[in-house]
Design a protein around this nucleic acid. Structure first.
Length: 926
RNA sequence: GCGAGGGUAGCCAAGCCCGGCCAAAGGCGCCGGACUUAAGAUCCGGUCCCGCAGGGGUCCGUGGGUUCAAAUCCCAUCCCUCGCACCA
């Protein structure tokens, strides 16, 4: 009987049957351990998240069927500030946030009311995640689930950081951060209303002396100090004289406030109008005595509000000077060149300005011009010999160091853009944070270890390897602690909390034992306990030895993990960080084995993003299409590392495909008997098994699905066509379906589970043996014969289509034996362009004259057009074309509805008969 | 700007490493036909241009080059995506 395809019922049944099925304990067989980056449960899952977890699930299911003991765990990352922020915004009645949670995420009002407690958000959404993940059919061992603020997990983080500290991987330092004085807190990019991509720039303050007072100017180009001709002040601005760390400076009032946040003790003494500074003279050891000149472009809110002027190399400085000189003022000042750069003469700034036809300092083209000179000089410029002759890129650091060491320079930080605004509406500044703890990713020794480890790992796709290598090269120290947010306190400095990315580096090891640790009270989880479990060292007293040994055994069974899965945006932080930490904590034998990197998700061609509301909720997708459809679409529309695009109409057609599969299998349940073409189907199936398996071994889920689904479908299509009239297929279909169900089980497990029952197989298909290609069933001869037949059919069809008449008969002429000889000579000739010559070397061919030359030409063309694989097969095992066509005569007559006659070409006087080639019979339609 | 990856028919995408299998797999969409009272589903065929014989022409972001031969190799150029940090 044909069962109805009741998706809802099937899904419900499977979720029940699978509830504990994937709980994996160490067993007496090979293991396979894979993990995915755990989610941060601050909102509902969308289809983009779906793909992230479905791909590893497909792999997990595949490996399980291959007979491995598979561990696929899941946990929730709740460390950091996001949920705290969300909770605050909900408590404050923020409309946008409430709308997001109530309307898009469909959180019930009574639950929403409780979201004023951040832990409620975490609780609600992690439960939602688990529910939806189960509906999605993810084969997860849920016993190991944890959240990153569980006390047991905190003990684990403390243990890890103690080791990192001991080994010198965590050090103390100062660090500039974005800071909101109104909130009295440092702010992350997501806390910003405006300027979320602002970069912190590091300026050098060049200290000019004016009597007893210092006038600092901020510059990104300290090497140009040699070329300073004057300073600029804005005559329309009021400056202040202030005691900074005991020394008097003159700077803008804005600057005074900025440096106050940057480690300086600031005490404003008096105001000084800009005009009072104009025409004063200041000095610096690198450029001597220079005057202060007025310029309206000087911004008191940039740097110190006073700038040094290098008219030879800075377009703004040049043009401001030119403007003054055109009025006949300061005409004695000459630009001082100090950098030589290809493509420019002695005074690059002057050239650029004159070339661009800049009228005055307010010209909007000045910004790009400045940038142009800046990059040209930085990348290609060299200081003149008298200033050392080094490339600018080197000299910059050298001069900065010199200025700092000998001439009182310090550093001042500024954003690269002006408007950086906190969510509270206040302006954001750069503040230096002290006592900050850093992970020393800059450590060359540590980097080398990671590079070595990287070299031993499998990376999928291989193209990401260079990106990982670059990341290792460029990583600098990472501030790994924060003052606010959820997380684990730093064990030796508990005022700090371990920052969220820094507490998620070796938790893959924690999964292996998470369910055991739940049973142990956190205070017993001393560092000694973890040393014993993970490193096999010491003899802890707080937990009994037998338990500890069991836990350690389990860890050693699963570890190292085989593959870690994550989206590609995490390469430059998490995925690389976790390698650093593994190298630091675990011995070589326990280092990770591989990583798989994903592409991103699009929705109707636009980037999927929760914050923009451009998402399709996973649960809605499940309800509308069913879990298998969602799964098959997400892994079948693009390979894991490619971006995928969720488009409704494509998803709908996926649903139809699954229904087609269901119907085919249901129909085949009655199939019996046998037909000539069965052997061909069985043979093809073996190839499909082999190529599906090969694709999955390379994580090519799309390719695997192409083979396992569409490949088998198209084989079935030809098979049905070749059956005798009225026949629906032999018992071979039953065998095929039993294989087919298993090949598709990793992708569409719900449907396959139901079909596995339907065909009367015992147990869960999730644990059924993965099909293995049976080479005894492979029959190259019959495949070749069918290939020949189908090509002939294609040829006939294309002729029938072309000619305007209704055919009344078809005559086929197979090529004579001597052309077969020609084929062999051409096909085995190494230089195929010379094949004709090769053929004509033979006495026998020469006797045939022009006929042979003609045949050789055509056969050469044919050989070049055929797939090389086919040519090889034809060479190895020639087919009896006459017999193949003769036995398919009934089929051909049915296909075209006219009598079909097969001839030997050499026995026919028909002029077209001479055109017959091996593997390409001549066709005459009348 | 810097680093990494990518641009293939209406769309998605294979092919590119290893040059001739390539007018370019597969899927989707669209068009036509069969079935049906009809719609849907399903099945068959078509889907760059030309062609009354299985053929020919043009084509793989753009412009050059190498080669008997280029989607594939080299150079230049334009465009897109991701990352550029203390944030999940």
């Amino acid at each position: 009987m044909l069962s109805a395809f009741d998706v809802e019922h099937i899904e419900k049944e499977c979720v029940k049957r699978w509830e504990h099925a994937f709980e994996a304990d160490p067993a007496d067989k090979e293991k396979f351990y894979l993990t995915v980056a755990y989610p941060y449960p601050s909102g509902a899952m969308h289809v983009g998240h779906g793909r992230t977890y479905i791909v590893p699930d497909v792999i997990a299911r595949y490996q399980r069927m291959r007979g491995k003991q598979v561990l696929f765990p899941m946990a929730f990352h709740v460390t950091g500030t996001p949920v705290i922020g969300i909770s605050k915004r909900i408590a404050n009645g923020d409309k946008k946030t409430i709308r997001l949670y109530r309307d898009l995420y469909k959180v019930p009002q009574d639950v929403l009311d409780r979201f004023v407690d951040p832990m409620e958000i975490v609780r609600y959404f992690s439960e939602e995640y688990r529910r939806v993940m189960q509906q999605l059919g993810l084969s997860i061992d849920w016993r190991r689930r944890f959240i990153t603020v569980d006390p047991q997990y905190s003990r684990f983080i403390e243990w890890q950081y103690r080791h990192l500290h001991e080994k010198g991987h965590v050090v103390k330092g100062a660090h500039p951060v974005k800071y909101c004085p109104q909130c009295e807190n440092s702010v992350g990019d997501h806390d910003l209303l405006e300027g979320d991509k602002a970069e912190i720039l590091r300026f050098t303050l060049v200290m000019f002396r004016w009597g007893d007072v210092l006038i600092p100017t901020a510059t990104l180009r300290p090497e140009t100090t040699y070329g300073v001709t004057n300073l600029w002040v804005n005559p329309g601005t009021t400056y202040v004289r202030a005691a900074i760390d005991g020394q008097e400076w003159i700077i803008s009032p804005e600057a005074a406030e900025k440096v106050r946040l940057q480690d300086h003790d600031v005490c404003v003494i008096e105001e000084i109008p800009g005009t009072a500074l104009v025409d004063q003279s200041v000095s610096h050891p690198l450029c001597g005595e220079v005057p202060i000149l007025p310029a309206c472009f000087v911004d008191p809110d940039m740097g110190t509000g006073i700038v040094m002027s290098v008219p030879a190399h800075a377009p703004f400085d040049y043009i401001a000077l030119r403007d003054l000189q055109e009025q006949g003022r300061y005409t004695a000042i000459r630009p001082i060149p100090l950098i030589r750069v290809e493509g420019y003469g002695e005074f690059p700034a002057m050239e650029a300005v004159e070339r661009a036809g800049i009228r005055d300092q307010t010209d909007p083209a000045m910004e790009t011009l400045t940038q142009e000179i800046y990059s040209a000089e930085f990348s290609r410029g060299r200081l003149l010999e008298r200033y050392g002759g080094k490339p600018v890129s080197e000299a910059r650091d050298d001069v900065a160091a010199l200025l700092t060491e000998k001439y009182g320079s310090t550093v001042m930080y500024e954003f690269d853009i002006r408007q950086v605004i906190c969510r509270c509406g206040g302006r954001v500044f750069v503040k230096i944070l002290h006592d900050q703890w850093f992970l020393r990713y800059s450590d060359p020794v540590w980097k080398d270890e990671v590079r070595l480890q990287l070299g031993r790992m499998a990376l999928v796709p291989p193209e990401v390897r260079t990106e990982f290598e670059r990341t290792v090269d460029w990583l600098k120290d990472w501030a790994c602690t924060r003052r606010v947010g959820l997380g684990t306190g730093l064990p030796w400095d508990p005022d700090w909390i371990v920052e969220p990315l820094s507490d998620s580096t070796i938790y893959m090891a924690y999964y292996t034992i998470a369910h055991h640790l739940q049973e142990i009270s956190p205070e017993k989880l001393t560092p000694e306990v973890f040393d014993y479990i993970f490193l096999g060292e010491g003899s802890p007293e707080t937990v009994d030895r037998e338990t500890l040994d069991r836990i350690r055994d389990e860890f050693l069974y699963w570890y190292p993990y085989d593959f870690r899965f994550s989206a590609k945006d995490l390469i430059s932080n998490h995925l690389t960080f976790q390698l650093f930490h593994h190298c630091a904590i675990f011995p070589t034998a326990l280092q990770p084995k591989g990583m798989v990197v994903f592409g991103m998700g699009l929705l109707d061609g636009a980037k999927m993003s929760s914050s923009k509301g451009n998402v399709f909720l996973l649960e809605d997708a499940l309800r509308e299409f069913g879990a298998d459809t969602v799964r098959m679409f997400l892994v079948g529309s693009a390979e894991p590392w490619q971006d995928f695009d969720w488009r409704k109409e494509l998803v709908s057609s996926t649903k139809k495909q699954i229904e087609r599969f269901w119907n085919t299998v249901q129909e085949a349940r009655q199939a019996e008997g046998s037909y000539d073409i069965d052997a061909w189907l069985a043979s093809r199936l073996q190839h499909r098994i082999a190529s599906t398996t090969a694709a999955l071994d390379l994580f090519q889920t799309r390719q695997a699905l192409q083979e396992a689904f569409f490949g088998i479908e198209s084989d079935l299509k030809w098979y049905r066509r070749r059956l005798p009239q009225g026949a629906t297929g032999g018992a071979v279909l039953q065998d095929l379906c039993r294989v087919w169900i298993r090949l598709l089980a990793p992708f569409i497990p719900f449907t396959c589970e139901a079909l596995w029952d339907a065909v009367g197989e015992p147990g869960l298909v999730s644990f059924a043996r993965w099909p293995v290609a049976d080479m005894r069933l492979v029959d190259p001869a019959i495949e070749l014969a069918e290939e020949f037949l189908s090509r002939t059919v294609d040829d006939i069809e294309s002729i029938v289509k072309l000619i305007p008449m209704e055919p009344s008969s078809i005559d086929l002429f197979v090529a004579p034996h001597w052309k077969r000889r020609v084929f062999e000579i051409v096909a085995s000739s190494s230089e195929r362009m010379q094949a004709v010559r090769e053929v004509m070397k033979s006495e026998e061919m020469r006797k045939r004259g022009r006929e042979a030359v003609e045949a050789a030409k055509q056969i050469t063309r044919l050989v070049l057009r055929l797939p090389p694989r086919l040519v090889e097969q034809l060479l190895a095992s020639p087919i009896d074309e006459l017999a193949v066509l003769e036995s398919a005569r009934t089929f051909l007559e049915r296909e075209f509805g006219v009598p079909v006659t097969i001839h030997r070409a050499e026995e026919s006087p028909h002029p077209k008969a001479s055109g017959a080639l091996p593997f390409k019979p001549a066709i005459v339609i009348e």
